[in-house]
C-alpha cells in the first residue's frame, strides 16, 4: 500500500499554519468572489497591495512558488483560488508543488 508519510509528505494545515497564513488565505477567500476576481484581472497589484502581504508572501506569490506559499501557511484551497485568478489551474499547482 503506497502509504503517505505524515512527517515527510504532508504539510499539516493546523492552527499555527492557519495563523501564519491568515493574509494569504484571506486573499484566496476573497478571490472566490466575482467582484474581487474582476478587480484582480484588471489590476492585480492593487488587490495584492490591499491584502497587506509581507514581502516574503508577495515574493512567493509573484514568483508562483507554491511550495513556499504552503510553507507560509497558505491552505491548498486558498492557493487554488489564488492560482485560478493568476490563470494557473489546481492540477498544475499540484504538479509544480512537488518540487
Amino acid at each position: 500500500m503506497p502509504d503517505f508519510d505524515p512527517e515527510r509528505d504532508i504539510l499539516p494545515f493546523d492552527l499555527a499554519a492557519s495563523r501564519r497564513g491568515m493574509r494569504l488565505n484571506r486573499l484566496g477567500h476573497a478571490l472566490r468572489d466575482p467582484a474581487t476576481r474582476a478587480r484582480f484581472a484588471a489590476d492585480p497589484a492593487a488587490v495584492l497591495d490591499a491584502a497587506g502581504l509581507t514581502a516574503a508572501e508577495r515574493t512567493a506569490l509573484e514568483g508562483r512558488d507554491w511550495r513556499a506559499l504552503l510553507a507560509l501557511g497558505a491552505s491548498v484551497y486558498a492557493l487554488a483560488k489564488i492560482g485560478g485568478a493568476m490563470g494557473v489551474p489546481l492540477p498544475q499547482i499540484v504538479r509544480e508543488g512537488r518540487g
Partner: peptide, 15 residues
C-alpha cells in the same frame, strides 16, 4: 487525494 508536497497527485486505489 493528496494535493500538496512531493507526492502531490498520488492516488491510493488499493485503499
Amino acid at each position: 487525494h493528496q494535493l500538496h508536497g512531493p507526492r502531490g497527485g498520488e492516488i491510493n486505489e488499493e485503499w
